[in-house]
Nucleic acid binder design. Structure first.
Lengths: 346, 346
DNA sequence: GGGGCACCTGCAATCGATTGCAATGAAGTG
DNA sequence: CACTTCATTGCAATCGATTGCAGGTGCCCC
């Protein structure tokens, strides 16, 4: 498929406005340096020709692509899709393009470096906690301030700019909610640890349990992978327990939903037999049955602020130290948690 | 944030391999035109320098960006996220970057044309049926074969390349499933019509009802917008009906879920009081309660094939007429549909 | 009136790759 | 041996924008 060849260039505009290409360029980038009359002539010519800048030429000359790369761990995920949406909106507003990628298979250090070297992207937005952040440092050379913002649910390398939520405290508040309903026997469905750092939601769970002087039983910590499927597995494991907790804190909503689906198959009812609190507040949480109590993550804000931060860094708004933004999760009480009743104590 | 300036260029490689830049370029694009010995020297130099091509320079020279633009109607959507995932995988495999956008607010003809003119993208993948396709023609000039593939759930302009599923027949099969369970009083939650073309799922519904000699009652056609929220509204409207259908075919799973959530609040039970069949088979469908009967859309295939088709067109695999790929939806029977019982007849 | 200055604009180099054309050399043919 | 042919490689123009430098103009002030 050949491109049409009548796309107007800056030369065409210059010719029509009776000025040099340099002047057109200046009108576009620093209009105050051009005489108003000339400026107007050029503006008219731009409109008349329908000129749009050739980004390849500009990128080549300026060594900047005005594009950011977003790395998500599988875009097909209810949680990240909203975030991505916010990123696209913010980036577009600032005149940046958004490239997406999710190649988790290959060695990330290689292809990420390629994106930089190839002048395809100026900065990176990482929503994927499974990337080895220690290797990210090598990507932008020795610059201690990478044009990179990490935004995922584990505390990343403190050297990296980050936008996250108060996972640890949120986990504590989730447990506190269950405790306030009278629950003492509390389990947890935990996601994998990422980046060799401890899973913050699990840590928060343990801390809250300790603070409330409650016992953490190893068999009540059910391993998961942040997927519905793993939630289902956890639900079956739960149903098979001889001695079950009366409440469960799930590391995210997807696992909570899988869990609820599985225990129902095993004849258990939520919240009668077990209260369940999730994490994230994905769209379906409020329309699930039972409607899911959860710690809402401000997903739109995460995406928007992450994009904003990255672009600020790229545009040299002076940054001296890594930026860390922490957003607050909000407890949303719905129907999947209920006061402890005699029957549940079983 | 300044870029590091020691990124190796093709000149650096050439110098190291003792050849000209032209030869390096040939080794990279048409190796068979270079003497094996030279080819090897160059390959070694590429490896040694860590050369990656500067895409801005290549795009400028070749007038091709090796990038495609994906337009989705709100990325924050369970349905499209899987498709986008497949697109990214396929495009990456073929060496293409993927830009995303979802600006539905502005006049699409304007900013889409900008993407083309600015040499930012070579082709378009449209998953957004709300774009006015008549205006898309103007984008790539007079070329009757736009570098554009439309993939959304309404039959688009036959002049456009498209990848879709058999919506109409699938809707008929959905109704047939309900009929086979004994239902005669069947309602429909329909999404908006797009592109001024009739909503295919609604048309399929009507056709199936006609073929089965069943009455289509206007008050049983509940308007929706393909969102959970609109499904909730439909559910409340349904509950308020004096004379209710015994089964409902929802235009997509999100509306079905909203619907189920709402009727439950109104004391109605699915499938006891009403059978519900959805459309799409989004991830949560199987873990919803009741598990949702639905027409599965091959989302991964839609995304992959759409990307494949677009890139084939871009790379001049001869295309003489618009390409139309139609994929088949599959009936997935779960728990939200059940045989008609006396109680439901009410 | 001349020197200085500020402002506006144009010239031309530059970013890094691709490719038509030409040069080179080796091989083949009469 | 001379001439053609072909394979291999290099030269240099080119894609379209940006920007340092310098030229030109007008204005002010002494």
């Amino acid at each position: 498929m050949k491109r049409q060849n009548n796309i107007p260039t800056i030369q065409d505009v210059a010719q029509r406005a009776q000025v040099s290409a340099a002047t057109v360029s200046r009108v576009l980038s620093t209009p105050e340096r051009v005489l108003p009359a000339t400026r107007q002539r050029v503006a008219d010519a731009v409109k008349a020709t329908g000129f749009t800048i050739n980004v390849a030429a500009r990128s080549l000359r300026m060594q900047r692509a005005r594009t950011i790369l977003v790395v998500v761990p599988g875009i097909g995920n209810a949680y990240y899709s909203t975030i991505l949406d916010a990123v696209v909106n913010e980036a577009t507003r600032r005149g940046y393009g958004v490239l997406v990628n999710s190649r988790l298979d290959d060695d990330p250090a290689t292809w990420l470096a390629d994106y930089f070297h190839s002048n395809r992207t100026d900065g990176l937005l990482i929503f994927d906690g499974f990337l080895d952040t220690r290797r990210l440092h090598s990507i932008a050379g020795d610059d201690p301030l990478l044009p990179l913002v990490a935004a995922y649910d584990e505390l990343p390398d403190p050297q990296l700019n980050s936008v996250l939520t108060d996972n640890l405290q949120a986990a504590e508040r989730a447990v506190a909610h269950l405790v306030s309903l009278g629950h003492r026997r509390i389990g947890h469905i935990c996601g994998q640890s990422r980046n060799a750092s401890p899973n913050e939601r699990l840590v928060g769970f343990r801390k809250a349990m300790f603070d409330h002087r409650l016992e953490v039983r190893p068999e009540w910590i059910l391993p998961g992978e942040y997927t519905m499927r793993s939630g289902v597995a956890a639900g079956h494991a739960f149903a098979a327990l001889a001695d079950r907790p009366t409440a469960v804190f799930a590391g995210n909503d997807e696992m909570a939903i899988g869990f609820l689906s599985a225990i129902r198959q095993n004849g258990l009812d939520c919240p009668r037999d077990v209260s369940v609190i999730g994490f994230d507040d994905i769209d379906v949480a409020q329309n699930y049955f039972p409607a899911l109590t959860t710690m809402r993550q401000p997903r739109e804000a995460i995406g928007r602020i992450a994009a904003e931060t990255l672009i600020n860094i790229l545009e040299d708004r002076v940054v001296k130290a890594p930026i860390h933004v922490v957003l607050t999760s909000e407890l949303i009480v719905r129907d999947s948690t209920a006061p402890l009743t005699r029957s549940a104590v079983g």
